[in-house]
Amino acid sequence: MRQLAGLLLGALLSTPLSASDDEQTRIAREMIQVLDAYAVYKMGDFDEAFERYRRLAEAGNRQGMLNLGNMHAAGLGTRTDLGQALSWYRRAADAGDAIGMYEVARAHDIGLGTPANPDEALRWYQRAAEQDNADAQWALGERLYQQGQHANGLSWIRAAARQGEHAQAQQFLAALDGDGVAAIQPNNEQRQAVLAALSLIDQAAQRRDVDALVALIRDDAQIQVRLPQSRSWQALSKAQLRTLWQQTFAQTDRYHYQRNEPELLSTDDGILAFSLIRETLARGERTQQLEIHESARLHLIEGRASIYGLRLDIRQRGE
């Protein structure tokens, strides 16, 4: 893992840097630290993960702020403190982070670390929705629709559904007569193409081939990951997801991966594939039993599938 970080930073540091290059290098270094902390967290070493996130957060890293807030909220690596969690979410939100904005909205909505304040919640949902946060778009749209602002509410619900990743928004629209977004079963050719693509990914995971693991993901794909016992989603690039897999494998002595039969649905903009993946990660005497609830959005071109959207909800078994 340290060797990987050195290689990545070495490539950046091997040429003279301008001011913008300095900033890019700092961002790259921080992302490596974030992904390193992800892998430590995933192994269940919460005390160490808390310290890594704390250092990142105090240095101004937004992902560090979010994850430190998550750990305060869940009482992982520290005592449960919803006030501290909200404080770190607010700092991330003030720094422009849409997930932080959503968490602040949610705290005001249901009273987590602060008295419930529906008006303040709506204001923060609006801010997060305008930053393309699907959860906030759904929450805002549903709230407005229930208040009788049907056109405004539906516009936000459609925005969440268009991202292909918010099942509640899609189900809401599918229930409306004439909306035309109800999902249907793919035909046999589509089904076989998607299953073949997922099989290639599964084979790559089983042999720990990180390049093959991400080969079918488009470079501009929208990727989100949620770690065990966390409420917040983290947006990653394809390269960052590759690095996270690399560091996950570096944390393990033994690794097992198995996908259940996926559920496939056809929509106007491709195929949705919902899968349950079971992971076992072992290092020394420590073993983690995880489940990945995967939602993948795939395009089919000439019988070949590529992934343009991916959500990985990683949970501890039984969570």
Rank of each mutant, 00 (worst) to 15 (best):
L7T: 14
L7I: 14
L17N: 08
S18W: 01
D22Q: 15
E23P: 01
Q24A: 15
Q24T: 12
R26H: 11
R26K: 14
E30H: 09
I32R: 03
Y38A: 08
Y41C: 00
G44F: 00
E48G: 00
E58K: 07
A59V: 03
L66D: 01
A74D: 04
A74R: 09
G77F: 06
L82Q: 14
R90K: 10
A93T: 03
A93D: 05
A95N: 08
R106F: 13
R106M: 11
R106C: 06
G111S: 04
L122S: 04
R123D: 12
Y125R: 02
E130N: 10
D135C: 05
G141S: 06
R143D: 07
Y145V: 05
I157N: 04
A160K: 04
G164W: 04
P186M: 00
N187A: 03
N187M: 06
R191N: 04
Q203D: 14
V210S: 13
L216Y: 03
D219N: 12
I223A: 02
A235V: 10
A235C: 06
S237A: 02
A239I: 09
A239N: 11
Q240S: 10
Q246V: 08
T248H: 00
T252V: 13
T252A: 15
L272W: 09
A273Y: 05
L276I: 15
R286W: 01
Q288C: 03
Q289R: 15
Q289N: 14
I301M: 11
E302T: 09
G309A: 01
Q316G: 12
G318V: 02
